[in-house]
Amino acid sequence: MCLSIPGKILSIKDQMATIDISGSQYQAGTHLVENAKVGDLVLIHSGFIIQMLTPEEAEETREILREILKNDETSKK
């Protein structure tokens, strides 16, 4: 469902990836994405990987958020 948390690809065989989600494994098709490989962070929906994520992107979002909050601090002053 949409509240999906990212999973990590453990292995790929015949276009099907085994994905770790907090210690449980889930099977998802790699048909909808390019170059999925072991170790990638992915979003899953209805049995398929729908998007690749990178840890850097997650880090970046956190930084952006910090920036937003900081901007506000400065604008208040």
């Binding site: 469902m1 509240l3 999906s4 948390i5 989600i21 907090s22 210690g23 449980s24």
Partner: peptide, 11 residues
């Protein structure tokens, strides 16, 4: 975590 992870994906 195994339960909450599967809960997220299964709704």
């Amino acid at each position: 975590p195994e339960v909450s992870g599967l809960c997220e994906i299964l709704g």
